[in-house]
Structures are given as structure tokens and as C-alpha cells.
Nucleic acid binder design. Structure first.
Lengths: 201, 201
DNA sequence: CAAGTACCATACCGATAGGTACAAAACTTG
DNA sequence: CAAGTTTTGTACCTATCGGTATGGTACTTG
């Protein structure tokens, strides 16, 4: 029975434009006008397709982890724990310093202080971040169980160590650090990794 | 010649209130009404005493580094490089997780993505962060020159490593990490420090 | 090609943003 | 205590915020 006028824009393309703006300007620094201008649609269309600004942002977060943040899921699938963390760290550098896209990390940015009106958004981002960190911890627990990590190692500590580094990398990138500089930081940091100095100095 | 009605509030106390609000809510998430309410003064008084919102924020940044951020300058004065970085890292944990104050770091938060209207604020914060990092690098260069760090060590890399960790600590704190968890991260990270495993595993 | 349906565009909503005009109030100086 | 100076409180400014009502438009279905 239904039919209706067809949508004149592509949903995913519009979502990508919104992601770009939120990534570059932050949730609070982005207005509906910024969004509609970047997405090439007008306000009612945005509302009909994505709901409120906050709902749109949540959909953008999904797109972020599926797209630019997809390296993380791939990294967890690496055979050895050391590889997992190397891929996470180098992936974080690429994510946050690739030319032509905003610097820094959408999640890291939005896990931090914001006005009361955006607090629910922040909470959602924090929850995602904690879930990611827990996923890494489980991966490292598995590695420990199979002997891929020493018996006296602490997966929770190790996972938090890696996440602290990726968080720091995102901040450094936002402040202008180059990928080369960050790769050297990672190289140094990995000397603390419990399977010894496998990447060698 | 001059005289005039005396100011009915304390400048530094008002600045501290403003710091608290900016720290908790971020520059963009804080309105003039939030500020005047917290400072206990009205709008024209705020303007007369501190200028625009942006000028007030810059004064708050100064107060931040002199007050809560003061540990950093003290850390640089420690006799050995290892002590310097230990104090910086543990100080960062205390700064960002002390109960009763906002979680996270004012500088780290504001070095990241924001709307175009706040971009000049962000640039200022980034400049401060880079200056701090350069200060640490010079301190480590000095340590290397005096043999306190190995001859093959790289002060720039080491300074960036430590700053990446403090940045990451701030993000972790904002996401709810406890001081204990972060101390264990620091303990692990210090195994990568070039003077060896001085803090022991 | 008539009926039904979903989308698009303009124009608008109340609320709030940062910032200020103005006059009353509280002080110092002569 | 009069003149001059600075702060305070109220009331208001324009611009923009996120969100929506409305009516025309383009399509699918029968």
C-alpha cells in the first residue's frame, strides 16, 4: 500500500558527512546548521532520517567503529598478544593522524568533560570505551591461558596500559604530533611488554 | 583622584570557582550563567573584572598551572630523571582523580576538537601543552648530558612518551579509572624507562 | 489517473547564548 | 559633605540554539 516520495540523499553518505563534522568539531561545537550544511540536507530531513542531534551522534558513533575504528576488531583477531597490541597501537596512530581527516579520536574526545546537557552523550561514549577495553582484557586473558603471555602477567593491567597509550596517542595527535613521533613512542612503550624485548632495541 | 566603590568579591576566589566549572564542564559546555552562578557575581562584574569568557578562561588556565598543576614544575626540579618522570606520572594521577574535584585534566580536555568559535582557545591550550612537553625534554637533555640518562637515549622520544602517558592518564581518569589502577599502569610503563628496571617488577 | 504516502523546503517556535546600557550604590579624595 | 570614580543590579540587546508546523512535491500502488 505505501509508496511515497523517495529520499533524495544517501543515508550512509550523509552519516559520513555528519561523522566528519562531529569528529572535527565535537558534539557541543557542532550545530544543527553545521550538520545540515555538511550533509547537504535541510533540518526536517535530518530529523526524519536520524532523529535528534543526540540520536544522530549515536548513529555516527556506530559508523565510526565500523569504519575508521574497524582496525580495533581486526587487531583483536591477531594470533599473538604482542601482535594484537602492536596493531592496536599502530592503528590508533593511523586513525588519529591520517591526513585529510580530523586529528584525534572521536571517542577519546567525547569521554571527557562536557556541559550538563551533553552528559548523557558522554556517558554513552565512556561505556563504549570501557567495553572496548574489556574486550582487550578478555583477549589478553585468553592469551595468558594459552601461554601466549607469562603466568604472572596481569591482563587487566596490560589492557589498561595499552588503552592509556591509545588514549594518549589520540591527545598527542590532536595536539599536532606526527605519526613518526608516535611510532617511536610506541616502540619505546613496547619495551615494557611482558614477553620481553621482542621488537628489540 | 581615584577611589570608587570597592569590589564586593575576592578575585582569586571567583577565579577558583570559574576554574571548577570550566574543569567540570569544559569551555563550550559552560555558559556565562553557569559562571556567574558559581562565582556568586553578576554579569557586568564578571566582565569588568575578567573580560570576555575567553579572557576569563585564559586566566583560569594560569591559575590551573599555578595551583592544581603546580606539581609539574616541582617534578622537574627532582635530582634524577627517573624521579622527575615518576613525580610527573603520579602527579598526573593525583591531579585527575582526586575526590571532590572534576575528573580529568583541563589542558588535555581542551587540546582536542572544538567548534570553530573556540578554536583560538584550543590553540592556546595546545601551545601550553607543547611548552610543557618541551620543558620536560630540556630537563631530560640535561640529564643525558650529566650521565643521568644513557648516552644512547633520546630525550625527545622519552619526553613524548611520558606526556603521552600523562595525556592517557587524564582520559582514563575522565572515564572513571581509579588511582590504584593508574598507578599500576605507571609501574608497568616505567619498565620501558632506559635506566632499567629500577622500580622492580 | 486518482488515492495514498513519504519527503522536501520555507518559515517559524520558545529558549538561551554571549555581551552591554544605564542608573543606583558605595567608596576615596579634597 | 560635595565631587569624582568604580562597582553593582536590573533589564535588555541581537544572534543563534535545537526542534517543529505547514504545505507543496514526487513517488508507488490500485
Amino acid at each position: 500500500m505505501p509508496g511515497g516520495r523517495p529520499r533524495a540523499f544517501d543515508l550512509d553518505a550523509a552519516l559520513d558527512r555528519a561523522l566528519e563534522v562531529f569528529w572535527r568539531q565535537g558534539y557541543e561545537g557542532t550545530s544543527l546548521s553545521d550538520l545540515t550544511a555538511a550533509m547537504g540536507i535541510n533540518r526536517p530531513s535530518l530529523y526524519a532520517a536520524f532523529g535528534t542531534k543526540e540520536e544522530l551522534f549515536r548513529r555516527v558513533l556506530d559508523r565510526y567503529v565500523e569504519g575508521p575504528g574497524g582496525f580495533a576488531a581486526e587487531a583483536l583477531a591477531a594470533p599473538r598478544a604482542r601482535e594484537v597490541v602492536e596493531k592496536l597501537l599502530t592503528g590508533a596512530i593511523a586513525l588519529t593522524t591520517t591526513p585529510g581527516r580530523p586529528r584525534g579520536c572521536l571517542n577519546v574526545r567525547h569521554a571527557q568533560a562536557c556541559g550538563p546537557e551533553s552528559e548523557s552523550v558522554r556517558q554513552g561514549v565512556v561505556a563504549r570505551k570501557l567495553a572496548d577495553q574489556a574486550g582487550l582484557r578478555r583477549r589478553l586473558e585468553e592469551a595468558k591461558a594459552t601461554g601466549d603471555l607469562p603466568a604472572d602477567s596481569d591482563p587487566d593491567q596490560l589492557a589498561r596500559f595499552v588503552t592509556t597509550l591509545t588514549d594518549g596517542i589520540a591527545v598527542q595527535a590532536a595536539a599536532g604530533a606526527t605519526p613518526e613521533q608516535l611510532h617511536r613512542v610506541v616502540e619505546l612503550a613496547l619495551r615494557a611488554w611482558p614477553d620481553g624485548d621482542a621488537a628489540g632495541r
